[in-house]
């Protein structure tokens, strides 16, 4: 085996060990962003293909997971954004900071309304609510909540300044709470409190 071939093999092993291990995490985010498994598969595949092609440019020791997310975000915004566009169904303004907290508190202190509320909502409903968020908010919410990236890491991945990341995350949170509350009201889990 030539030294070039063995180097290539070593590269591939390293790629598997350092990059491919993040496949589930990337897929989870891809699914929330594209909203369907076929596109999520394609997006993740494209991400790894691009990462592989630039693998020798990736600096060992730096954050591989963040690098992969950056590549994926880039591809998503360029190629998938229009496809996964969400019609604006929720009102972006007018969500109080303590909207859900206020609603739940108003239900009365008797039987721990918060726990009651959280227990009623299913996994799929939370996922659906996340997918209903406008894309800009969804991306930062997913990167922060589900992937656990720090504000700075998110800022690097989505190429925004940290202040914008924080404000999007803040509003994304509020919108998510509002969507879940509306969902719970619609399904009769809670009675809308007259606030």
């Amino acid at each position: 085996m030539s030294s070039r071939q063995s180097e290539e093999l070593k590269n591939k092993e390293r790629f598997e060990k350092e990059a491919l291990v993040h496949i589930d995490s990337l897929f989870r985010t891809a699914l929330r962003m594209t909203k369907n498994e076929g596109d999520a598969d394609d997006l993740v595949q494209e991400t790894f293909l691009k990462a592989w092609r630039f693998w020798d440019k990736f600096q060992e020791g730096s954050n591989c997971r963040a690098w992969l997310f950056k590549i994926m975000t880039n591809i998503f915004i360029n190629n998938y954004r229009a496809k996964a566009w969400t019609p604006q169904t929720i009102d972006l303004e007018d969500v109080d900071d303590d909207f859900l907290f206020g609603q739940l508190s108003a239900l009365g202190p008797s039987d721990d309304p918060e726990k009651h509320f959280f227990n009623k909502i299913f996994d799929d409903d939370v996922k659906k609510a996340i997918e209903e968020l406008p894309e800009d908010f969804r991306l930062v919410v997913v990167l922060s909540f589900l992937e656990g990236f720090s504000y700075q890491e998110i800022a690097d991945i989505v190429k925004l300044n940290i202040g914008t990341v924080k404000s999007r995350l803040h509003r994304g949170r509020k919108l998510l709470q509002k969507l879940l509350w509306e969902y719970a009201v619609k399904n009769g889990f809670v009675k809308e409190a007259a606030k």
């Binding site: 589930d24 989870r28 929330r32 907290f101 918060e114 959280f118 996340i130 909540f145």
Partner: peptide
């Protein structure tokens, strides 16, 4: 406590995949 609980709730429900 509520906001903390909310975050844990979302992470817990939406992470399964």
């Amino acid at each position: 406590q509520f906001e903390e609980m909310f975050k844990i709730f979302v992470v817990d429900k939406a992470s399964s995949q």
